[in-house]
């Protein structure tokens, strides 16, 4: 058990380190950063000044080591655009993005698990097919477009929900629904497959034979076994959702980390971009690590691996 977790933790650290290098290389190798910062109307002298002021004239490995060392102590440099420390900018906006991710995940689980159970209980029926169609529709839905359609429908025509900002809690509903759409297909299929397998197993037959009610058999016995993979995939999906928040936050004008990233990318504010790439990668790595741990706790067979 300890060895398994240790190996996973070392792997996670190595992945984070690699992403650190990629995040750095990304902004340095694909163009001259100084020219990008200076903008299209800058003279050669402007560019030279910027290169010197931002320390871009030093060798790349030196720049990388300095940035990595600072990042390790929580200092991600200063934003060119906001003229403020990047760490503070991200800290201010992180609650919105996390709130968005969690509302998306909650909506996704509340939709996918009941539908998956229903689908499994009536395997092959018309209901099962209809639910399968929902998964396919969710998979094909362009999230940014769905966001706009919901804004027109619920925000403007019906005026039920706020269409931008999160000044009140219900501001999370529409973006949460859009975000949930991307996770529902995977979670739904997994719940369905897990439940079908569980419902066909011997202990369910025993439970039924004992005369337990269908509700008790399905919810207490089968769901408990089917939920293990769902829980670990849900953690990974949350990571993807936080990564996808960049599109949703732009559509709904939510000033979270995703919006900050989009703004920084379009304005060449690269210290911020690097930090957000690193942050999202670390959250993803952390969530997969948690998922691995949960699997190890729930399924003793994995601990040997």
């Amino acid at each position: 058990m300890v060895r398994f977790l240790l190996r996973r933790a070392i792997l996670a650290a190595m992945v984070t380190l690699t992403v650190l290098v990629v995040a750095f290389a990304l902004t340095r190798l694909s163009g001259d950063l100084a020219v990008s910062i200076a903008g299209p109307n800058a003279t050669a002298e402007d560019v030279a000044t910027i290169r010197k002021n931002y320390g871009l004239d030093r060798p790349l490995p030196m720049q990388f080591l300095e940035w990595a060392a600072n990042a390790a102590s929580g200092d991600f440099g200063r934003s060119y655009l906001y003229r403020a420390p990047v760490a503070g900018l991200i800290k201010d906006r992180l609650p919105i993005t996390i709130g968005l991710g969690l509302s998306g995940l909650t909506i996704a689980l509340l939709t996918a698990i009941p539908l998956g159970i229903l689908s499994a209980m009536r395997e092959g029926s018309l209901l099962d097919r209809a639910i399968g169609l929902i998964a396919l529709i969710g998979q094909a839905m362009p999230s940014f477009w769905l966001g706009l359609v919901l804004i027109i429908g619920f925000g403007l025509k019906l005026q039920w929900l706020p269409i931008s900002g999160v000044d009140t809690w219900d501001g999370y509903i529409l973006p949460g629904i859009v975000l949930a759409f991307s996770a529902i297909p995977a979670l739904l299929r997994l719940t369905r497959a897990g439940m079908i397998e569980a419902l066909a197993s011997d202990y369910i037959r025993t439970a039924r034979a004992k005369g337990l009610s269908t509700a008790s058999v399905v919810l207490k016995h089968a769901l408990r076994n089917a939920s293990m993979p769902v829980v670990s995939v849900a953690a990974v999906q949350l990571g993807f959702m936080l990564g996808g928040s960049i599109v949703i936050e732009t559509v709904f004008a939510l000033h979270g980390v995703g919006y900050l990233a989009w703004e920084s990318i379009s304005k060449n504010d690269f210290p911020v971009v690097q930090a957000v790439v690193l942050l999202l990668a670390m959250i993803y790595v952390g969530l997969t690590l948690i998922a691995d741990m949960m699997n190890a706790v729930l399924d003793p067979r994995l601990r040997a691996g």
């Binding site: 984070t16 690699t18 990304l26 990564g243 790439v277 997969t288």
Partner: peptide, 23 residues
Amino acid sequence: MFAITCRLAIPLILVALTVVALV
């Protein structure tokens, strides 16, 4: 396997946007 794990950790849309913005 390590390459696959790293790729999954890289935020897709964010990195794609950054590359297109720079290039």
